[in-house]
Design a binder for these strands. Sequence first.
DNA 1: ATGGTAGACCTTCTA
Length: 259
Amino acid sequence: MRIATWNVNSINARLETVLAWFREAQPDVACLQEIKCVDEKFPREAFEGLGYNVETFGQKSYNGVALLSRTPLEDVRQGLPGEDGDEHARYIEAVVSGPSPLRVASIYLPNGNPIATDKFAYKLRWMERLRAHAAELLKLEEPLALAGDYNCIPEPADCHDPAAWADDALFQPETRAAWRALQWLGLTEAQTAVSPTPHAYTFWDYQAGAWQRNHGIRIDHVFLSPQAADRLQACEVHKAARAMEKPSDHVPVVVTLRE
DNA sequence: ATGGTAGACCTTCTA
């Protein structure tokens, strides 16, 4: 089973690019982030035409996440528990049905910049809520994948120039500690587990020639429960997607689990 | 030199 995560930076602006990648890569499950539209505006039919079941948690203009699966999605949950009044659409979870069911979540963690504002406090609260929810899910002792844009640069080797990120929310000690706290729960980050390659970037800014200079960051991750990590076979960063026509600034990350 | 680009969309916010 192949599970993809991809921050598409507007599903409607990116539809042809995303569909072309889906035809080529043919993931069984996909977690999308930053769809940037309400549920009614998601191009559902285009993905159903490729054989996917579609669940979305959208929002006007910003954020928005989606789950796509070849088999039906059950037990769908929209929104991360733990903060009443949180309006951001950043979390959707469901169970991919089949002979070996997989619980999967599409995660768009808050960016958190600038760090001297409530945006950073919101980011850290959101990370603590995710930790608490993940701890609950781990009690189920079932295959689980928490995939998405974590907006966290875990290690210096996950960027080109750590000094350039020193004041950025993605590289703050608190952000990185909250990310590691997910590991200490017993979750396995797939890319690091399979091939801990330095500079395996998943995002390159549109600005300042970041792609041409390979000034990227590794911020798109897949965390697996022990029952899923036990089946981990591969984790691939689809770097070529950054060179497509009208690319997203993120590329897909695809995890393969043994059946 | 505080730049640069992209998307949504009403003029500026977010990234």
